[in-house]
């Protein structure tokens, strides 16, 4: 299925800012993170179409997935 994936803050380093990707049908948010080698220890939250989702949420085609690390500086 086709997904638009947006990465934020430090997750962009060595990856991308925004990309159109193909990902297996029926897969979950967690599997997308695995495919992108996103380390869980830094994970803040994931949004689909701007709304928070859990890692076991099934992904739907043609949606925008936004992935944020925890942002801790101040």
């Amino acid at each position: 299925m086709h997904l638009t994936v947006k990465l934020f803050a430090t997750y962009r380093e060595g990856r991308f800012e925004i990309a159109d990707l193909e990902h297996p049908d029926g897969s979950t948010v967690g599997s997308l993170l695995d495919a992108l080698a996103i380390p869980r220890a830094e994970l803040g939250f994931v949004l689909v179409q701007g709304r928070h989702v859990e890692l076991d949420t099934p992904l739907a085609a043609n949606t925008t997935v936004s992935i944020f690390p925890k942002v801790g500086g101040g």
Binding site: F8, F45, L47, G50, R51, H52
Partner: peptide, 19 residues
Amino acid sequence: GLATFDLWTNDYLLATGFP
């Protein structure tokens, strides 16, 4: 929700749906 910003790529997003 959680207001998120990136000033370099002009991404401004209100993250909603947190229970």
